[in-house]
Deep mutational scan, measured.
Amino acid sequence: MSDQEAKPSTEDLGDKKEGEYIKLKVIGQDSSEIHFKVKMTTHLKKLKESYCQRQGVPMNSLRFLFEGQRIADNHTPKELGMEEEDVIEVYQEQTGGHSTV
């Protein structure tokens, strides 16, 4: 019986991991920090939209990076291997420009 009891508790931990929340720091170019608590399985588009709304800027005017890689709207913290207190960097999107060649 103890084996049966242990097995469901392991499964519960697996389920808990799926719905687990982590805190992420979003740091802007001006070094301002906003902290977000997100589920591991939530699409990061929600975090990006919330950040842009707080900053009063359109979402397409900023780019969000985690460990140097651009974050897509459909990425989740779990897919990117994010952990508690990880940092997302935000930069002004640069458009235009010309070749110097």
Score class of each variant (00 low, 15 high):
45 K>N: 08
92 Q>W: 10
55 Q>E: 12
44 L>F: 14
77 P>A: 07
17 K>S: 11
17 K>D: 10
13 L>P: 09
17 K>C: 08
81 G>F: 15
51 Y>D: 04
29 Q>Y: 07
92 Q>A: 10
61 S>K: 02
84 E>T: 10
93 E>D: 09
59 M>N: 11
85 E>Y: 14
91 Y>C: 07
55 Q>R: 15
37 K>V: 01
17 K>V: 15
89 E>N: 10
22 I>E: 00
71 I>L: 02
85 E>N: 15
29 Q>S: 05
94 Q>N: 05
81 G>I: 04
9 S>G: 10
53 Q>A: 12
2 S>I: 12
88 I>E: 04
88 I>M: 06
9 S>F: 08
66 F>C: 04
74 N>K: 13
46 K>P: 02
10 T>G: 07
46 K>Q: 10
66 F>T: 03
79 E>Y: 15
91 Y>H: 11
75 H>D: 11
45 K>C: 07
2 S>C: 12
55 Q>M: 15
18 E>L: 09
23 K>R: 14
16 K>R: 11
38 V>K: 05
40 M>W: 00
49 E>W: 00
24 L>A: 04
52 C>R: 05
12 D>M: 00
18 E>Y: 10
79 E>K: 09
49 E>R: 14
50 S>Y: 04
56 G>P: 00
85 E>W: 15
29 Q>F: 01
26 V>T: 08
68 G>Q: 12
21 Y>A: 07
37 K>G: 04
89 E>Q: 06
4 Q>S: 14
10 T>L: 13
24 L>W: 01
4 Q>L: 14
81 G>R: 07
42 T>Q: 14
28 G>H: 04
85 E>L: 14
88 I>T: 03
67 E>F: 14
75 H>R: 06
54 R>F: 10
11 E>A: 11
27 I>C: 07
32 S>R: 12
10 T>M: 11
66 F>Q: 02
72 A>I: 15
22 I>Q: 04
43 H>C: 15
41 T>N: 04
20 E>K: 13
58 P>D: 02
51 Y>C: 03
38 V>Y: 08
83 E>I: 13
89 E>L: 12
37 K>S: 00
36 F>G: 03
88 I>A: 03
59 M>A: 09
31 S>I: 08
66 F>H: 13
44 L>I: 04
32 S>K: 15
59 M>I: 10
57 V>Y: 14
